[in-house]
């Protein structure tokens, strides 16, 4: 009979790593929206986000969103890997963050927020 590493099998079944990935994805989507809003609302931030001139502020908005997403994933994975976490809460927050990402990338909603 083959030896089975029970601890690794058990670890695979814990939800921490998956929860970290899900919440980080929500954070990444929301940060995309927040940076989009900041670039739209403040001309100073818009010029700072102009990382690559041919692409304009979109380069900074998306680069920073990716950085925030990866950093959040790294931190959450460090914290939750090998643990079980309350998925209902994690999913709830992740879905709200995903909705924030969609809302803040929708130009008419950005106009409303800026009072245009």
């Amino acid at each position: 009979m083959a030896n089975i590493d029970v601890s690794s099998v058990r670890k695979d079944l814990l939800n921490g790593a998956g929860a970290a990935a899900i919440l980080a994805a929500g954070i990444g989507c929301a940060s995309l929206g927040v940076f989009t809003l900041l670039a739209e609302a403040f001309s100073g931030i818009k010029s700072v986000l102009n990382f690559y001139n041919p692409t304009g502020p979109l380069s900074g908005v998306t680069t920073l969103a990716i950085v925030v997403w990866v950093a959040a994933w790294f931190v959450l994975a460090k914290k939750w890997d090998g643990r079980d976490v309350a998925m209902t809460r994690v999913n709830g927050v992740a879905f709200v963050l995903l909705a924030v990402g969609f809302a803040l990338t929708f130009p008419p909603f950005l106009d409303v927020l800026q009072g245009k």
């Binding site: 994805a25 995309l32 979109l58 969103a65 997403w69 969609f102 929708f106």
Partner: peptide, 14 residues
């Protein structure tokens, strides 16, 4: 389009 499109690769990677 230029902004919302980036949700897809983030979500799909996860």
């Amino acid at each position: 389009k230029e902004h919302v499109a980036w949700i897809a690769p983030i979500a799909m990677t996860m």
